[in-house]
Amino acid sequence: MKVQVLVSKWCPVCPQAEKVWKEASEKVPMELEVLDIAEREGREIVSNLRIKTVPAIVVDGSLKTVGAQPLGDVLKMLGAS
């Protein structure tokens, strides 16, 4: 499973989302990438998926959710609860 967390330097919620997803990656096998939407790869994903807000979570190429979720909700989303 490939999980991409799209973030921005100006986003006040993004560091929290990044922390939760990094913690989840220690509990559930996944390939985790944190991408800044100001960088080329992040911009391409935002454009292709028409993402309007960050943090945005992309799982295996599909937008899964936006915003920061508690660890328990993230684990449920990944089927690990």
Rank of each mutant, 00 (worst) to 15 (best):
D73R: 11
L6Y: 08
N48D: 11
T65R: 06
I57H: 04
E26D: 13
A38C: 00
I57P: 01
V46Y: 03
A17I: 08
K19S: 13
Q4T: 15
E26T: 15
V54F: 00
K22C: 09
Q69M: 11
T53F: 05
L35F: 10
T53K: 11
I57L: 05
R50V: 00
D73E: 12
G42I: 02
I51M: 00
I37R: 02
K27L: 13
V5T: 08
D36W: 01
P55D: 10
D73P: 00
D60E: 15
L75C: 07
W21D: 04
V74D: 05
P55M: 07
E44Y: 00
V28M: 04
T53M: 09
V28Y: 04
G61C: 03
K22A: 07
E23K: 14
K22I: 08
W10E: 11
K9M: 04
I57Q: 00
L32T: 06
D36S: 10
C11R: 13
K19V: 13
R43S: 06
V74H: 07
E18N: 12
C14Q: 12
K19D: 13
V58Y: 02
M30E: 05
S62D: 11
Q4K: 13
V20H: 05
Q4A: 09
R43C: 01
A17D: 12
N48Y: 00
R50G: 10
V13N: 15
V34E: 07
P55N: 11
I37Q: 01
V20F: 02
P15K: 12
P15H: 10
S8H: 08
A24S: 09
E18V: 14
E41D: 13
L49A: 12
V20N: 04
V58A: 03
M30A: 11
S8K: 13
V54W: 01
I45P: 04
V28N: 08
Q4Y: 06
K27W: 03
Q16S: 05
L32H: 00
I45R: 05
L75A: 08
A56V: 10
V13W: 14
V5E: 03
Q16I: 05
I45V: 12
V3K: 00
D73W: 05
K64H: 09
R50Q: 14
C14P: 10
C11Q: 13
K52R: 15
A68N: 14
I57K: 02
E33R: 04
T65G: 00
V54H: 04
G42S: 03
E41Q: 14
T53E: 09
S47F: 04
K64N: 01
K9T: 13
E18S: 10
E26R: 15
I51C: 02
K64D: 03
S8W: 01
K27Y: 03
L32S: 04
G67I: 01
A17N: 10
V66A: 03
C14H: 11
V74A: 06
S25I: 10
K64V: 01
V28I: 12
I37H: 01
A68R: 09
V58K: 02
C11I: 10
V13T: 15
S62K: 15
V74I: 13
L6H: 08
G72C: 11
P70M: 04
N48W: 01
V66E: 06
L6P: 05
V20A: 04
Q4G: 03
Q16D: 11
D36E: 12
K19A: 14
A68K: 10
C14A: 14
R43A: 11
L49C: 09
I45K: 07
